[in-house]
């Protein structure tokens, strides 16, 4: 069950390589920013699922919305001559690392609680050591 997303990722990569889709070089940066947004959303979703606050609708809408908004932001930035995509890169990058950090700590916490057989409840340590 948990391997289904991984299989999906592999499937997506396979489709991408099999289908001969090329994006004009000018729009290549939009795709990269969209990928960053998507990555951020995916890690956000994983974190939410670990924190048991996952909402499918929020997750899916967030994924597509963030992706599109990021590309749109990059487009506006190009039109205005301001490197707005940098803002998206920084924002998504920071969020990405935060999410990964949270996921890591949750995972460690779970391993710890399982090993020591501490009281159940998914208690989180205070988020101060990012």
């Amino acid at each position: 069950m948990i391997w289904l997303p991984v299989l999906g990722l592999i499937l997506g990569v396979g489709i991408g390589f099999a289908v001969n889709v090329t994006i004009p070089v000018a729009y290549s940066s939009y795709l990269s920013i969209a990928i960053l947004a998507a990555l951020d959303t995916v890690f956000g979703g994983i974190r939410a699922s670990m924190e048991k606050t996952f909402d499918g609708a929020v997750f899916l809408s967030g994924f597509f919305f963030n992706t599109l908004v990021a590309a749109l932001l990059a487009y506006i930035g190009v039109q205005l001559g301001v490197d707005l995509y940098l803002a998206a890169v920084v924002a998504f990058g920071v969020r990405l690392f935060q999410n990964i950090a949270v996921i890591r700590r949750i995972a460690f916490n779970r391993m710890h609680t399982r090993r020591t057989r501490a009281p159940e409840g998914g208690h989180l340590p205070p988020a101060d050591s990012r």
């Binding site: 991984v6 999906g8 990722l9 991408g16 795709l31």
Partner: peptide, 12 residues
């Protein structure tokens, strides 16, 4: 989401 992400990554 993973399928879409994988697709985008591979294209890029």
């Amino acid at each position: 989401v993973a399928v879409v992400l994988g697709f985008m990554i591979s294209v890029q």
